[in-house]
Simulated scan of single mutants.
Amino acid sequence: MTSRDQFHASLQTQAPPPTLSLSQAALWWIGKKNWAEAHRLVQSAEGARECDRIHALLHRQEGDLANARYWYARADARMPDQTIIQEWEELVRQAFPQTGTQPS
Rank of each mutant, 00 (worst) to 15 (best):
71 W>K: 02
86 Q>G: 14
65 L>G: 00
24 Q>Y: 01
84 I>L: 15
63 G>M: 06
34 N>P: 02
45 A>N: 12
69 R>V: 11
26 A>N: 02
9 A>R: 10
42 V>G: 00
21 S>F: 00
5 D>N: 11
89 E>H: 11
11 L>C: 05
48 A>G: 04
15 A>G: 03
49 R>H: 08
28 W>R: 01
13 T>S: 12
50 E>N: 10
5 D>Q: 14
69 R>K: 12
25 A>Y: 01
6 Q>M: 11
32 K>A: 08
12 Q>E: 14
81 D>C: 07
13 T>M: 08
90 E>H: 11
21 S>Q: 03
82 Q>F: 10
74 R>C: 15
99 T>E: 12
69 R>T: 07
71 W>L: 06
33 K>I: 10
86 Q>M: 15
50 E>W: 07
36 A>H: 12
4 R>S: 09
86 Q>V: 09
34 N>I: 04
30 I>M: 14
43 Q>H: 13
97 P>I: 03
93 R>C: 11
38 A>V: 05
5 D>G: 05
5 D>A: 13
71 W>G: 00
3 S>W: 00
29 W>I: 09
3 S>N: 01
9 A>C: 04
54 I>P: 10
29 W>E: 05
72 Y>L: 08
10 S>N: 02
60 R>H: 11
67 N>C: 06
68 A>C: 02
60 R>I: 08
20 L>T: 01
13 T>H: 03
51 C>V: 08
92 V>S: 08
54 I>C: 11
81 D>V: 09
96 F>E: 00
30 I>Q: 13
9 A>Y: 08
58 L>D: 05
3 S>A: 05
45 A>I: 01
74 R>H: 05
42 V>E: 00
6 Q>A: 14
55 H>I: 04
102 Q>P: 03
38 A>Y: 01
16 P>T: 00
2 T>F: 02
24 Q>V: 04
100 G>Y: 04
92 V>N: 06
4 R>E: 15
18 P>S: 15
47 G>W: 06
55 H>G: 07
103 P>E: 12
88 W>V: 09
90 E>Y: 11
61 Q>K: 14
79 M>F: 06
23 S>T: 12
94 Q>M: 09
4 R>Q: 15
41 L>R: 08
60 R>F: 05
29 W>F: 11
17 P>G: 01
35 W>S: 14
71 W>E: 01
8 H>Y: 15
3 S>C: 01
26 A>K: 01
17 P>S: 06
46 E>C: 12
42 V>T: 13
51 C>R: 07
78 R>F: 10
35 W>P: 05
64 D>R: 08
15 A>T: 14
42 V>F: 02
52 D>E: 10
90 E>G: 10
86 Q>L: 08
57 L>N: 05
45 A>W: 09
28 W>G: 01
29 W>Q: 04
30 I>N: 03
73 A>R: 15
103 P>C: 02
